[in-house]
Amino acid sequence: MTQPVGKEVRYSTKTKRVLHILLKVIVTVVIAILLFIAIVYTVNKISSHSEQKRLEPYGQHVSVDGKQMNVFIQGQGVETVVILPGYGTAAPALDFKPLISELIPYYKVVVIEPFGYGLSDQTQKERSTANIVSEIHEALQSLHVDRYILMAHSISGLYSLDYVNQYPNEVSAFIGLDSSVPSLSEQKVDSSVTKPIKWFRNLGFARLQLKLGADPYDGLPYDEQTKEQLNILIRKNMYNTTQLNEAVSMYSNFKAGERLAFPPNLPVLFFVQANHPVTDQWLPEHEKQIEDSVHGEMVLLDAGHYLYRSHPKEISKKIRDFTGDIKIKN
């Protein structure tokens, strides 16, 4: 027995009605998403334009590989300390300000802002350790800085391992600020991963991400004007192409660094966070790096990865003691 036609028509009409409502819901959701994206994009463009007008230049530019690299110099000390930033530090010269303030009564301090950082240009050149080291050295040569203590935070510790071996007659000592160790490699990042990140940045969602996150400088010794400038440069440099390219090169840079060691006669001082949140090998691997050093020392701090922000006085005092001991022994 066949089903009555009238019933089929009713079912068909009901199905069409449901599909129509579903389609309207989907269209509404899509429009809402597109509107949200448009608002985020517009707010980011307007805010970025406004922030550029409020950005206050600092330091000086030197020509490196045909581009402009920003460097910041303060202090009149006989010895020079050259500071290199960790990965993604938006404005190194401002970020290191608490430590710089503690060091400049005793040292001449030079902060290098590599390409893609602070007020420096970006570059399309591969972010290999060799290229980064060459660019830093070229900047220092332009400034006629030819004898100095090299201080590096995080990933710059990896680059510095290559640097001190290439220029042993220039570097008088190395100071690591929770510096990276080649044996504790970062995960491999494929270049295809960076494409959606660029979209995320270009559409303005990086700004939204920062807005929803915690203030990394809250409660730390930074004045309001410095914090404002830092936040402007964080939004300017976050996920820029040069830094994303550096992330892609990071794994191979770590692997290349495994073949290197600090020269035994180079004084090495490590400031290390006492309780690493991810690995229990952080302290042992740093100890291995200085086991053959004639003058190697490690200081543990109850701090996070950015220990120079929270413990500038302790770090400065220990550096003075350390460099004083080196003079006595030499």
Score class of each variant (00 low, 15 high):
Ser180Gly: 11
Asp162Lys: 12
Met151Phe: 08
Arg147Pro: 08
Val189Arg: 05
Ile149Leu: 05
Ala139Thr: 07
Val133Lys: 11
Phe174Ile: 03
Ala173Arg: 05
Val193Gly: 10
Met151Ala: 13
Thr194Ile: 15
Glu135Pro: 06
Ile155Trp: 08
Asp162Ile: 00
Gln141Gly: 14
Ser192Val: 13
Ile175Leu: 06
Val193Trp: 14
Leu150Thr: 05
Ala130Thr: 11
Gln122Met: 12
Ser134Cys: 13
Leu143Gln: 09
Ser191Pro: 00
Ile155Met: 11
Arg127Thr: 08
Glu126Tyr: 11
Gly176Ile: 06
Ser191Gln: 13
Ile155Ser: 13
Ala130His: 12
Arg127Pro: 03
His153Asn: 14
Ser183Phe: 09
Glu113Phe: 06
Ala130Gly: 05
Tyr148Gly: 09
Pro114Phe: 01
Asp162Pro: 00
Ile136His: 14
Asn131Arg: 11
Leu143His: 13
Asp162Gly: 08
Asn131Leu: 04
Gly118Gln: 01
Thr194Asp: 09
Ser183His: 11
Gly176Ser: 09
Val171Ala: 03
Asn165Asp: 12
Ser120Thr: 07
Lys125Thr: 15
Ile132Lys: 09
Phe115Glu: 02
Ile149Arg: 04
Tyr117Met: 07
Glu170Tyr: 07
Leu143Asp: 09
Pro182Tyr: 03
Tyr163Ile: 00
Asp146Thr: 13
Ser179Gln: 11
Val193Lys: 14
Trp199Gln: 12
Ser179Thr: 10
Gly118Trp: 00
Val145Pro: 05
Gly157Met: 02
Glu126Leu: 14
Tyr117Lys: 03
Phe115Lys: 00
Tyr117Asp: 02
